[in-house]
Amino acid sequence: MPVSRTADDLPEWRRRTTAGDFAVWGAWLAGLALTVACFEFISGRTIWAFVWDAPTQGADLVQRMFPPAWTYADVLWKPMWDTINIATLGTLLAIAIGFPMAFLAAHNTTPSVLFVRPVMLFLIVSSRSINSLIWALILVIVFGPGMLAGILAIGLRSVGFIAKLTYEAIEEIDRTQVEAVTATGASNPQVLAWAIVPQIMPAFAGISVFRWDINIREATVLGLVGAGGIGMQLQASINTLAWPQVTMIFILILGTVVVSEWVSARVRHAVI
């Protein structure tokens, strides 16, 4: 924010100094040069014949995918229902574990900043750093293939998500409401139930429904590793090159996701 004087001694203001201006333009130029260099690098390692061929290949695939195998839907209802159940039960499991964890992790409600909070933060990070598909891969080995592995995979991945966003909401509450309830002589559990829980309820409901919505999508691929749901049919259809069936599965997944999104939007709207 340089202030200088003009020739007739009036104060003048500009956003940056001249050197600052050059630095900004220099940074843009460097960014552009880097982009060009990266493009060169990638293009040198691309087999362009395949790329030029892509539209033809794509068109060919699409042609083989249509019309969808409508009758195949009869086989799909059950796995689709399983998928929705995996997502819902997994989310409920994550809520049951994640909600108390959030209170143990939040700075203003944790029983111990030095011990319990770091342990909870570590558990949250561990849960979040592993994708559901990888959780499923491990759990299928432990529990064998099927829905149980899928539910646990979804649950373990979602615990961290729900706990993290909820503890952030707990840390952002209005402290004066807590003060007021404390001043009445309420015990700590009462302060939690009367001053903190009502404040985080909208955020918590929104987080849970949002996670359920994400889990519906994630549950559709868990079958690829044998953890139940519609992913198993997807893999079987791709392996046998049954493209019209693949299309049918896509349509069903799309429909389910649209419905779940509509539900979660409605719920979030209702709790605010």
């Binding site: 004066t176 409401q177 003060e179 007021a180 001043a183 009445t184 009502p198 404040q199 309820m201 909208p202």
Partner: peptide, 11 residues
């Protein structure tokens, strides 16, 4: 205790 910003539990 009575507070400046009322400090009611809003919800």
């Amino acid at each position: 205790m009575i507070f400046q910003e009322y400090a009611l539990v809003e919800r």
